[in-house]
């Protein structure tokens, strides 16, 4: 089992944090550890995604990769992040559409806020990957990508939001909380804190 990457999106739908860990034992196909490679069930643009992200990976890994193994805030703008966001966004909306609350007279009412409906998307998986998803009421979205056999990581996502994010972004006077496009969560306290926490999880090592 392993955890491959972590992604955080803000309420403007920008990816403000991305972290991809090197897999311990590199296996064929997991080189890119993207949720969209080898994925027969989801997207039709699989081929274009893999090719574009592989070139980005190669160029970026030399430039900005100083903090441990893997990539930090490198893939925020590329297709991988955008497709992940799109997939999560659609699934989340489907989830709220499928569920018709009993006290609601018209289940097709478009004005319902998807957030107010208690049919949350928490995880979805493919043959090779599982995406664990958390969304705050303020529309911050956190996703962890792991292998499909990984246990449920909701508590880890909750910890990342409550402890790490709140402490080192919200309560950090020297960090903004409203991120423009192209701005990332790049203070070392958050990056190291998240690294230490995730790599210490049993799901990461076992």
């Amino acid at each position: 089992m392993a955890i491959y990457s972590c992604w955080i999106f803000n309420r403007h739908c920008n990816c403000v944090y991305s972290r991809e860990w090197e897999p311990k034992i590199p296996t064929a196909g997991s080189r890119l550890f993207s949720p969209f490679t080898n994925n027969s069930s989801t997207s039709t643009s699989t081929n274009s995604t893999t090719t574009s992200s592989s070139t980005v990976n190669q160029t970026a890994s030399t430039s900005k990769n100083e903090l441990g193994n893997g990539l930090t805030n490198v893939s925020n703008q590329n297709d991988k992040a955008k497709l992940l966001f799109g997939a999560i966004f659609s699934l989340r909306n489907i989830a709220s559409k499928l569920y018709s609350p009993k006290n609601n007279h018209d289940p097709n009412d478009e004005s319902i806020n998807p957030n107010s409906i208690s049919n949350y998307l928490t995880t979805f998986s493919t043959n090779n990957y599982r995406v664990h998803y958390f969304e705050s009421a303020s529309n911050w979205k956190i996703a962890l990508i792991s292998d499909p056999k990984c246990q449920d990581l909701q508590s880890a996502l909750n910890f990342i939001y409550v402890q790490l994010f709140n402490d080192f972004v919200v309560k950090n006077a020297l960090s903004q909380i409203d991120f423009d496009e192209g701005e990332y969560i790049d203070n070392p306290a958050f990056i190291n804190g998240l690294d230490n926490y995730v790599t210490s999880l049993p799901a990461f090592t076992s």
Binding site: K171, N172, L174, D186, N187, A189, F190
Partner: peptide, 19 residues
């Protein structure tokens, strides 16, 4: 203890002085 600037330790300490 939670303050941390993305621009490194030196800048962080410099800014915290005001706080």
């Amino acid at each position: 203890s939670k303050m941390n600037s993305a621009k490194g330790e030196e800048i962080t300490n410099e800014k915290i002085k005001t706080y």
